[in-house]
Amino acid sequence: MKLTLKIWRQANTEDQGRFISYSVDDVSSDSSFLEMLDLLNEQLVAKGEEPVAFDHDCREGICGMCSLRINGLAHGPERATTVCQLHMRSFQDGDTITIEPWRAAPFPVVKDLVVDRSSFDAIIQSGGFITARTGSAQDANSILVPKCDADTAMDAAACIGCGACVAACKNASAMLFVAAKAAHLNTLPQGQAEKDRRVLKMVSTMDEAGFGNCTNYGECEAVCPKEISLDFIAKLNRDYGKASIKAFLSGSDE
């Protein structure tokens, strides 16, 4: 395959950034999208040019590092697929492909296609955990979890924190991410003790980080590589409402 790539190049956070066109030849339709970018970078390095910076790690679709907007869609044209699992057979010979970083105020561009997603880490640190004694493991099955709850928690826990939901949202809202992370723990018995505090803290950290608001637009769900459902956002709203009322009645913010 012969392709024309329109890639966003930006030297650092302060740089204005611009699209630059490159052409790559001899791309195998069996190669992954990231392997195609590797090929381009090898060519750039051979010519003495700066390679294109992009995030990647496991290349198995489970780490959440890859983060490209391809032809206007987060993670490209295939549904329920991360960029690393996207293959060049999804494109045609001679195509022009536009490649951009996630764009959202809380995700500043570090370089080229790499964005800083540490605002997600801040959200997790504020409540995406359970406080448990560490040390020797408990007996198996000492806490019983109904199968349907375990399944729901697992569906939520599938979130890999890539940030495609934010990138696809016209409001740069992180609601789907926060909803998945909160629902994962709020559904399980182990997460009940800190449920209210978790929801309030994670939502307030999300707002402080400068993410936008959810207007029930649904694009996040459409691009999510793990197919996290909007129903989790409804659950987050429900849990947040309950926690806020309890906090108001008890006069504390936890």
Partner: peptide
């Protein structure tokens, strides 16, 4: 809400496609 959303979304020089958002939701 719109103000906060505008602040969260910087000017976007690129292309942005929509998959499932309805016309009604885009034009509220």
């Amino acid at each position: 809400l719109t103000r906060e959303n505008c602040k969260a979304c910087p000017t976007d020089p690129g292309v942005k496609e929509r998959v499932q958002a309805t016309l009604s939701s885009k034009t509220m």
